[in-house]
């Protein structure tokens, strides 16, 4: 039974190229689909260019949304990666 899990993160830094790459690698460790929601924009965490196109900046809040068998763990791992962005 697929689960769904959502966590919000206040970005400590801009979601720029290096952290975006780390998000993709982190999300790929899980089978769940992970999306990052910023305002009206949604990016699949598999796509580094889509994550960059969110244009999410330091101090802004994004939502990590995971859907799948390992959704809670996937959301937590990606949220942790976002929180430690520098």
């Amino acid at each position: 039974m697929p689960e769904s899990s959502e966590l919000t993160v206040v970005l400590p830094a801009h979601l720029h190229a290096r952290p975006a790459g780390q998000i993709v690698v982190t999300a790929a460790r899980f089978t769940s689909t992970v999306e990052i929601v910023y305002g009206a924009k949604v990016a699949n965490a598999r796509g580094v260019l889509a994550l960059l196109a969110l244009g999410a900046t330091a101090g802004e809040t994004v939502t990590v949304r995971a859907t799948g068998d390992d959704a809670p763990a996937a959301a937590e791992a990606v949220a942790t990666a976002l929180r430690t962005t520098s």
Binding site: A17, A20, G21, V24, V25, A28, R46, G47, V48, L49
Partner: peptide, 15 residues
């Protein structure tokens, strides 16, 4: 540039 970045990141996941 964009193609290389997208490809390198996906390659890093073992794709």
């Amino acid at each position: 540039v964009e193609g290389a970045v997208a490809a390198a990141v996906i390659a890093a996941t073992g794709a």
